[in-house]
Measured scan of single mutants.
Amino acid sequence: DEVRLHVNGHTIEFRGIDEEIFKILEEAAKRGADEEELRRLAEKLLR
Rank of each mutant, 00 (worst) to 15 (best):
N8H: 06
E36M: 09
D1F: 15
E13W: 09
E13S: 10
D1G: 11
D18M: 03
R15E: 05
R15H: 15
V3F: 15
R47W: 14
V3Q: 15
L46V: 12
E37Y: 14
L46C: 09
E13D: 07
F22R: 10
R40H: 12
E13P: 03
E2V: 15
A28Y: 14
R40G: 08
F14V: 03
L38P: 00
K23P: 01
A29N: 03
E36D: 13
L46W: 04
T11D: 12
K23I: 09
D34K: 12
H6I: 13
L45Q: 01
R39L: 13
E19P: 12
A29I: 11
F22I: 11
I17E: 02
E35Y: 08
N8S: 05
D34Y: 03
I17L: 10
R15Q: 12
R39I: 14
R40S: 14
V3M: 15
V7F: 09
E37L: 06
H10L: 13
A42K: 03
L5G: 01
H10I: 13
E37R: 04
K30P: 00
L5S: 01
R31D: 12
A42N: 02
E35K: 06
E37G: 07
F14N: 01
L41D: 00
G32T: 01
A29C: 15
I24F: 09
D34V: 11
K44R: 08
F14E: 01
E20G: 11
K23T: 07
G9Y: 01
E36N: 10
G32E: 01
H10T: 12
G32I: 02
K30F: 14
I21A: 11
F22M: 08
R4Q: 12
G32H: 01
E27A: 13
F14T: 01
E20F: 13
H6M: 08
F14W: 03
L41C: 07
E35Q: 07
A29H: 05
L46M: 12
H10V: 14
K30A: 07
E26V: 14
G16E: 05
K30Y: 13
E20W: 15
I17V: 06
L38I: 14
G32S: 01
K30N: 12
D1V: 08
V7R: 00
G16N: 09
I12R: 00
K23M: 10
E26Q: 14
G32V: 02
R40M: 13
K44N: 05
A42Y: 14
I24R: 09
A29F: 09
R15Y: 15
K30T: 08
E2M: 11
A33Q: 06
R40F: 10
L38A: 00
I12M: 08
R4V: 11
A42L: 13
G16S: 03
N8F: 03
L5K: 02
L41T: 04
E43N: 06
F14K: 00
A28P: 00
R40N: 13
L45H: 05
A29T: 04
L41K: 01
I12D: 03
G9N: 04
E27D: 12
I21D: 10
E36I: 11
K44M: 12
D18L: 04
I21Q: 15
A28C: 06
E20T: 10
E27I: 08
E13T: 15
I17R: 02
F14P: 00
K44W: 15
F22N: 02
E19D: 13
L38F: 02
L41I: 09
E13Q: 03
D18N: 14
K44T: 11
V7A: 04
G16T: 03
I17N: 03
G9C: 02
D34F: 07
E13C: 06
L46G: 03
D18K: 07
D34S: 15
I24C: 05
L25E: 00
A33Y: 14
E27H: 12
F22L: 10
G9Q: 02
D1I: 08
G16R: 02
K30G: 08
G16L: 03
G16Y: 05
L46H: 04
I12A: 02
L45R: 00
E19W: 10
L41P: 00
E20A: 10
R15I: 14
K23D: 04
K44D: 12
R4E: 10
R31M: 14
E27G: 09
G32D: 02
E2D: 07
N8Y: 02
G16F: 06
I24E: 08
A33D: 04
D1L: 12
R31I: 08
E13N: 08
R39G: 05
L38K: 00
A33C: 07
G16M: 02
R39E: 04
E20L: 09
L45A: 05
R39S: 05
D18T: 14
D18I: 04
E43S: 07
R39F: 10
E20S: 10
I17M: 05
R15F: 10
V7S: 03
I12S: 02
R4N: 10
R39T: 04
D1W: 15
L5H: 02
A29M: 07
G9A: 03
G32Y: 02
E27V: 09
H6Y: 04
R39P: 00
L45K: 00
L25K: 00
A33M: 14
D1M: 11
L45G: 01
L38E: 00
F22S: 05
E43T: 06
N8D: 10
I24T: 06
L41Q: 01
K23V: 09
L38H: 00
F14Q: 01
E20Y: 14
I17K: 02
V7N: 03
V7I: 12
K23W: 07
E26A: 11
H6D: 11
E20Q: 12
E36Y: 15
K23F: 08
E35P: 07
A33L: 09
E2A: 10
L46R: 06
K23Q: 09
K30E: 08
V7C: 12
D34Q: 07
A42F: 11
V7E: 02
D34W: 04
H6T: 14
K30W: 12
H10F: 13
T11H: 05
I24V: 14
L45I: 07
E13F: 12
E2Y: 09
E26P: 00
R4P: 06
V7K: 01
E2N: 09
H10Y: 05
E13V: 15
E35I: 11
N8V: 03
G9H: 03
E19Y: 12
L25F: 01
L5V: 11
H10C: 04
A29D: 00
L45S: 02
E36C: 11
E35M: 08
D18G: 13
H6C: 09
A28H: 12
E27F: 12
N8R: 02
L38V: 11
I17S: 03
E2H: 12
E43Q: 09
V3S: 08
R4W: 13
H6G: 02
R40K: 14
D34C: 02
R47M: 15
F22W: 05
